[in-house]
């Protein structure tokens, strides 16, 4: 029962992450996604401190705005100040994350709900305690009710905007030629990533999000080049990772969220090794050497 609810929560985090991750990967924005997932922390902490609760929707949306602002700040440092992108990312998100950690340390005495540990691991284990009963039946948990709309939103956007998103993902120059406003699609995707980071924070913590974004997507991308296939495979790998990771964590009696990411990492590494060893043979046959 509790197990089922935990797995569902994990799946609702992994599914949008593995889909959004594909687009981030195609656009070389994975580390920007990582930056967002760190940068929303101070917003979340402030939201908690003000409302003293975990599920105030508008406050959390406010936290998500922090993520979008971070991408704009990175862009500003990169374009206007001409600081190269990696350093701009490394400067922007570490500051916001540090502020979040300090806020937590400062208010740790007054708000027991938040501590440094939950920033890292999330609270997947206890998420099922916050049950929602409706008409005498258990219909879900607080976390599930937060994540469900996010999932619907992400799926809707991907299904209905598949064409323009494909153009955006593959080649923005081409999109610009067609008169497409690529900036808008970027903003949309970054907003989705920010919202996802905020809502999954509680379950998996701020730091594991990047693993959920990049590992299924990259594993899928090693197998296929076709966007629809990559999206499908990525979601499948993410879902499998959740289920397997959950039981491995139970078995070893360790934290669930990092175990799920480790299992996704295992999937990725296996796929890569198999491909590499097969490719190696091919290269030896054709005698190709590159560096």
């Amino acid at each position: 029962m509790g197990n089922g609810l935990i797995i569902i929560t994990a799946l609702l985090v992994a599914l949008p992450a593995s889909l959004l991750g594909v687009f981030l990967m195609m656009r070389r924005l994975v580390m920007v996604g990582d930056a967002i997932s760190h940068a929303v922390l101070p917003g979340i902490v402030v939201a908690y401190l003000i409302t003293e609760s975990r599920d105030s929707f508008p406050m959390l949306l406010g936290a998500a705005v922090m993520g979008v602002l971070t991408t704009m700040f990175i862009d500003f440092l990169n374009r206007r100040i001409r600081i190269q992108q990696d350093a701009a990312i490394g400067t922007a998100f570490t500051f916001l994350f540090a502020v979040g950690v300090l806020l937590i340390a400062f208010f740790a005495g007054t708000n027991t709900d938040l501590d440094q540990e939950c920033v890292l691991y999330g609270d997947l284990e206890t998420s099922f305690l916050d049950q929602r009963i409706w008409g005498g039946y258990l219909v879900g948990t607080g976390a599930i009710f937060q994540l469900l709309p996010l999932n619907i939103l992400v799926l809707t956007v991907i299904v209905f905007a598949f064409r323009p998103l494909t153009v955006w993902a593959f080649n923005s120059d081409f999109g610009k030629l067609l008169g497409m406003k690529t900036g808008r699609w970027q903003l949309l995707m970054m907003s989705l990533v920010s919202i996802h980071a905020v809502f999954s924070f509680e379950s998996v913590g701020a730091i594991m999000v990047v693993g959920m974004l990049v590992l299924p997507a990259s594993a899928a991308y090693l197998i296929s080049n076709k966007l629809s296939v990559v999206l499908f495979l990525s979601a499948t790998i993410g879902i499998l990772g959740c289920v397997v990771g959950f039981f491995v964590a139970l078995w070893l009696n360790v934290s669930i969220a990092p175990t799920i990411v480790s299992i996704c990492g295992l999937f990725f590494t296996t796929i890569w090794l198999v491909q590499w060893l097969r490719g190696e043979r091919k290269v030896i046959q054709t005698g190709a050497v590159t560096n």
Partner: peptide
């Protein structure tokens, strides 16, 4: 100045 014999380069096969 440069003598090249049978130079072949492949990128990823």
């Amino acid at each position: 100045c440069i003598t090249v014999e049978n130079l072949q380069v492949n990128y990823h096969q």
